[in-house]
Simulated assay, not measured.
Amino acid sequence: MFEQGPFGRQAEEMFSQIAKTFGDTFGEEFAAPFRERALSFRTDIHEDHGRYLLEAELPGFRKEEIDIDYTAPHLTIRAVRQQAEPVSEEDGRRAIRSERRYGEFVRRFYLEDVDREGIRAQLKDGLLKLDIPKKETTISKRILIEGED
């Protein structure tokens, strides 16, 4: 009853268990891809005229629940959702199914040469948009030889 498909919630629980099992055995780095799948959010990143444009789906989050940090060369987006107080059966209601996720959702991105002071963020309708300008860098420089021929 109320099950939406054979791979929905079971897949999430399976990835969480795999992350815990392999993280305990082989270390945190090994388990990171599994954990990311279990407690993550979807993003798109584009590069355009000297800047990165990042869009992250964070439906239901308020801007106060989202933390964005750039510590070279990593950009980290962390969103924390606190679990609501459970409804007691004294109120005449009981939970039949609870699928909403609670906890900390984190993504970390490797971005070089970012102008950290120029990063701008906007949250609208559950979509976080980051405008991340790159630093001006000179890839090559021509050097002239001084003096007599």
Rank of each mutant, 00 (worst) to 15 (best):
T21W: 08
L111M: 13
D115S: 01
R116E: 09
I68L: 08
R35A: 10
D48I: 12
G23K: 06
P59S: 02
P59M: 02
Y70Q: 00
L75F: 03
L39C: 02
P86H: 07
E28H: 07
R101A: 11
L111A: 05
A56C: 09
I45L: 15
S40R: 06
T25D: 11
F22T: 12
L54D: 05
D91H: 12
Y102G: 02
E89H: 10
A95Q: 11
R78C: 07
R78Q: 08
Y70V: 02
A72I: 07
V114N: 00
V114Y: 02
G103V: 05
S40E: 01
V87D: 08
V114K: 00
F109T: 05
P33V: 08
P33L: 06
R101P: 04
R101M: 09
D44P: 01
I66Y: 04
S88I: 11
S98Q: 13
A72H: 11
G60R: 01
L54H: 09
E57H: 08
I77D: 00
L75I: 05
F34I: 05
F34G: 01
E29R: 13
D69M: 11
I68R: 04
T76S: 09
R97S: 08
R78M: 08
A84Y: 11
F30V: 14
D91M: 15
T25Q: 15
A56Y: 08
E104G: 00
F41P: 01
E65N: 09
T21Q: 14
E47Q: 14
I96N: 04
P73H: 06
A84R: 13
A32Q: 11
A32W: 05
I77E: 00
E47W: 09
E90Q: 11
R116T: 12
L75P: 01
I66H: 03
T25K: 15
P73I: 07
A31W: 10
E28D: 10
T21I: 15
R51F: 04
Q82M: 10
L54G: 04
G60H: 05
A84N: 10
E104A: 04
A38R: 00
S40I: 02
T43F: 14
E85H: 11
R81I: 01
E90I: 12
E64G: 07
F30H: 10
H74T: 13
V106H: 03
E99L: 15
I66Q: 02
D24P: 05
D69R: 15
E112R: 14
L111P: 03
A56K: 03
